[in-house]
Design a protein around this nucleic acid. Structure first.
Length: 442
RNA sequence: GGAGAAGUCGCGUAGCUGGCCGAGCGCGCACGAUUGGAAAUCGUGUAUACCCCAAAAGGGUAUCGAGGGUUCAAAUCCCUCCUUCUCCGCCA
């Protein structure tokens, strides 16, 4: 959520920022300003009346006291009764006016909130405007593997070595699902362990969150209401509450401190979580995404930070470096790309992608996406910290980054490390998780 | 899943025969006094959001798990939901 004060101060800057993200929100911004004005006017009016009403009630309280006293003394209470009746009549009238105003206020506020939630985050000013075509590769790391033989596709390599059972995965759960088997499952688990151990060594706290979340988590993270159709919903026959399968651990981590005020000394909070991620990805499965590049379920370790606003740039750099180191530690070739404003997701002010070379796909594919949401998610979820110097609560900044998703790393590793005989060299960093195994062969 | 109890200001509690309760007390915390320094003691203060106001001062509204209702007036009465605890059942 954006800061209404900023929108009021400089609506044109907000509109321009959103245009850089390739969304036209001019009408929404104008409507928000209009609603804000009407809401405040209405509030002032109805709160004034409520104040009057409260005053009358208080007066009545005193009158009732007097009446009791008079009755005890056997005095005449008719004057007091009349005063109470007059107050009541006035109160009832005020009550009706206020009720009407509140009804209108409720409608306006609902519209206002929906509109505010629909506005994406503003991009950082240094990002190029526009979409994917304006992404800027910042650096290339590692060597491209060159083959003196015709490299195989990871699907073929995995099937030959018995690492992945694609057919039975589909049998169990439909298209877009696969099943790790034997050494494939162990290799997947080794990757996850390598990520986990690295984050622990870096002082991040390990979180295993629930996998089925309530709606509010998605709203805080910024996925809902816009992308509510892209997740799996779980309805319970004996209960009308709906959960959804988390599409990324970010959805859970962003909500950990929702509606809380942290102390400044506790920041930054550095978390990482391992979860499977579930996505409907209603789009078509193209031939160039054959295999395990885009599935309905994949494993991911997610990094997350809550920071003070002034620390979030440094935290962002730290997360990018951590993601890069994980890929580099596997000896894989990758590049880091600074996304153009329009390619950053709705919630994010800036995003760098780590892209890895998958030979069969003839191109770089995202394995990690590191983003700074600044105070956008904090506003949606009301996540704050108390500034020691002022004693006042402020919104935190939230950042997240994959560290890493295996579903792209696994095929890249298999393809980049294949040998002519179809065997696969295990990266040094993973061998200790596989009993020292150096090569996966038939 | 069945039965019962409970959810109050950071923590612990009082209030729950409706008005003087945004809320008492204790602890904690902050500042001050006292002290050579500390402990102890004493004093003062101690929520959040929004609105009015150029700002400060000040004023107003809302919040006693959440939502709704009764009433001129609700922490206090009624309804629904959520959560926690205890007992029973069931199961990893």
């Amino acid at each position: 959520m954006l800061d209404i004060k900023k929108i009021k101060e400089n609506p044109d800057a907000v509109k321009a920022g959103l245009k850089a993200k390739e969304v036209d929100c001019d009408a929404t911004v104008d409507r928000i300003l209009e609603l804000d004005e009407r809401i405040r006017a209405l509030k002032t009016a109805s709160e004034g009346k409520t104040a009057q009403k409260n005053k009358l009630s208080k007066e009545n309280g005193k009158l009732f006291g007097q009446k009791k006293k008079a009755e005890r003394e056997g005095a005449d209470t008719s004057a007091i009764d009349a005063a109470i009746a007059a107050n009541n009549a006035q109160s009832v009238q005020l009550d009706q006016d206020v009720a009407d105003e509140l009804r209108e206020l409720g409608e306006l506020q609902a519209e206002y909130r929906t509109a505010m939630l629909s506005l994406p985050n503003l991009p950082d000013p240094d990002l190029l405007p526009g979409g994917k075509e304006n992404n800027q590769p910042l650096r290339y790391v590692g060597e491209k593997h060159s083959f003196d033989f015709e490299p195989k596709h990871h699907v073929d390599l995995c099937q030959n070595l018995g690492l992945i059972d694609y057919e039975r995965g589909v049998k169990l759960a439909g298209a877009g699902n696969w099943m790790y088997t034997g050494m494939g499952a162990r290799l997947e688990w080794a990757l996850l362990n390598y990520f986990i151990d690295t984050h622990i060594a870096d002082g991040y706290e390990f979180i295993l969150p629930p996998h089925m979340l309530e709606y509010q988590c998605g709203e805080t993270a910024g996925q809902f209401p816009k992308f509510a159709d892209e997740v799996y919903k779980i309805a319970n026959p004996t209960d009308d509450r709906i959960h959804y399968m988390l599409p990324t651990a970010e959805a859970a981590l962003a909500s950990v401190y929702r509606e809380e005020i942290l102390s400044e000394a506790d920041l930054p909070k550095k978390f990482f979580a391992y979860t499977p991620c579930f996505r409907r990805e209603a789009g078509s499965h193209r031939a160039d995404e054959r295999g395990m590049v885009r599935g309905h379920q994949f494993n991911k370790v997610e990094m997350f930070q809550f920071t003070r606003p002034e620390d979030s740039d440094a935290a962002f750099d730290e997360l990018v470096r951590k993601a890069e180191n994980l890929v580099a530690g596997l000896g894989l070739h990758f590049r880091t790309v600074k996304l153009a404003a329009g390619d950053c997701s709705a919630s994010m002010a800036r995003t760098y992608d780590i892209e890895i070379l998958i030979p069969s796909m003839n191109g770089y594919k995202e394995v990690s996406s590191v983003s700074n949401a600044r105070d956008y998610q904090a506003r949606r979820g009301n996540i704050r910290f108390r500034r020691e110097a002022t004693g006042k609560p402020e919104f935190v900044h939230t950042l997240n980054g994959s560290g890493l998703a295996t579903s792209r790393i696994f095929p890249a590793l298999v393809e980049q490390n294949q040998r002519a005989d179809g065997s696969i060299v295990v990266p040094e960093a993973l061998r200790k998780y596989l009993g020292g195994l150096e090569v996966i062969a038939k």
